[in-house]
Nucleic acid binder design. Structure first.
Lengths: 122, 122
DNA sequence: TTGGTATTCAACTCATCGGTTGACAACGAG
DNA sequence: CTCGTTGTCAACCGATGAGTTGAATACCAA
């Protein structure tokens, strides 16, 4: 399993949890301490600390290394990694669907409509 | 837990698995049957069938309903849902960082650099 | 009907995950 | 130094997830 594959595993898994997505949304507004992040949630402080750790291991956040004040900071580069992956395949598929539509339009009435991936008169 | 929150949970969780990301990448090229999808993998056919089910429940793929041939089809709308979520916060954060840089540039040499989210002379 | 092909369902195992509580560590303020 | 604040670590629990194998279903074909 290659390095970038594991990175993608971690960022997608990190955002698969609604609490962690909430933390990311909060951090988009400003950096915050773990205590500040935990305040709106019903779960224990430690649970939020764990969530932040997951985000950190995914590379989605970083922490300034000064003792008491350990403000959590959103890393937009990691978010960009995900959109790059997603958009690559979304665009590839949409481009294909567009070509398929063109083909169907061009051959309209010319016998039965066919999916292009099926063989043409083998 | 609201409906769109659950939907986001499922799409992100679906792409947190390298096998499922591989299936999505494959499906971007063309629709395919479960058997075709399973061929490149070492795991059992049933395991791939399960993965496809996860993608389907996340809304990432659909299946044409004709008996034997049950071709799996990539749904680009679900991919768009994810990028919409991610890009919203990425842009929000990047905009903020840009403003912070501007502020720091404007006040360069004017005392010590400060993070804008900390109170100004309380 | 009897196959054959393609796919799903069911039951099970093992690892991981989100949550809890309790103890511990690091530091600033008094 | 001692205290309070802030945060992490460790051990545990119940649920979920990915994988397995074996049986069942659904349909085309001979």
């Amino acid at each position: 399993m290659d390095e970038s594959t594991q990175r993608l595993d971690r960022v997608f898994a990190a955002l698969a949890d609604p609490t962690r997505r909430g933390l990311v949304a909060r951090l988009a507004v400003s950096d915050a301490s773990v205590g500040e992040l935990a305040e709106p949630y019903d779960v224990s402080f430690q649970a939020i600390s764990k969530h932040v750790k997951v985000l950190e291991e995914a590379g989605l956040v970083t922490r300034s290394r000064d003792a008491q004040r350990r403000p959590v900071h959103l890393n937009t580069e990691a978010l960009g990694l995900m959109t790059t992956w997603i958009e690559r395949y979304r665009r590839e598929a949409e481009e294909r669907y567009r070509r398929l539509d063109d083909l169907l339009a061009a051959t309209a009435g010319d016998g039965e409509a066919r999916r292009p991936e099926e063989k043409e008169t083998p």
